[in-house]
């Protein structure tokens, strides 16, 4: 555990579990929701297991996150639950998943279908605590993004726009920045860093 680079403020929590792991280039913080299209048989199987169990973990994978970087930084994932599913025009299963919390992945095993399972522990991140402070402009600007994008808007029936952590987390998810930078907002940077970053892009 000492080899992980943890940003100050990240603490291990009690909960341990073995969960399916889904490697995806998707950055999701607690309370974040995204739609996924599932077509590979092994992931269909995983989804069906996940619905009767405790969900699964999206492990942020991207070519930009280089091998040596992931060796030194913490392998973390977004523990999600399936909140809705539907079928696309083309008949492909679409699921909406919502992040419950972040987890650290301690070990990974494969089963006969080449499905990954990981031993995980929950970690705390600023984005899973709630702070009811209206951060005016960031909230308003985010509200506009929702209003302008139906498909995003529909994912969030409940928008906690008066929670500065919630607002900031959603901004980090949707801003056009490389995934390795987003990754760093979990493993390296604090809430303050993240806030300063988003503000300098959105406000100024």
């Amino acid at each position: 555990m000492n080899s992980y680079k943890l940003a100050s403020g990240i603490v291990m929590k009690e909960l341990n579990a073995t969960l399916p792991i889904f490697p995806l280039p998707v950055f999701l913080l607690p309370e974040g929701v995204t739609k996924l299209r599932i077509f590979e048989p092994r992931y269909l199987k995983m989804v069906s297991t996940a619905t009767s169990g405790q969900g699964f973990v999206i492990w942020l994978q991207d070519i930009k996150i280089s091998a040596n970087e992931s060796a030194t930084s913490m392998p973390w994932g977004s523990w999600v639950e399936i909140i809705n599913f539907d079928q696309g025009d083309d008949g492909i299963l679409e699921i909406d998943v919502k992040c419950k919390s972040l987890v650290v992945i301690k070990s990974i095993a494969h089963d006969e279908n080449n499905l990954h399972f990981g031993d995980v522990s929950r970690i705390a991140h600023w984005s899973d605590t709630h702070v009811n402070i209206t951060n005016g402009q960031l909230s308003r600007s985010l509200a506009n993004v929702f209003a302008e994008n139906d498909s995003l808007n529909n994912l969030y029936p409940k928008k906690v726009l008066n929670d500065s952590h919630w607002v900031l987390a959603r901004w980090l998810e949707i801003l056009p920045i490389e995934l390795n930078v987003k990754n760093a907002f979990v493993v390296s940077y604090s809430f303050k860093d993240a806030k300063a970053f988003v503000e300098s892009v959105i406000l100024e």
């Binding site: 269909l44 069906s48 619905t51 009767s52 599913f85």
Partner: peptide, 11 residues
């Protein structure tokens, strides 16, 4: 989502 595999794979 609590109705198991069959339901899900044949939604």
């Amino acid at each position: 989502f609590t109705q198991g595999i069959n339901k899900l794979l044949n939604p």
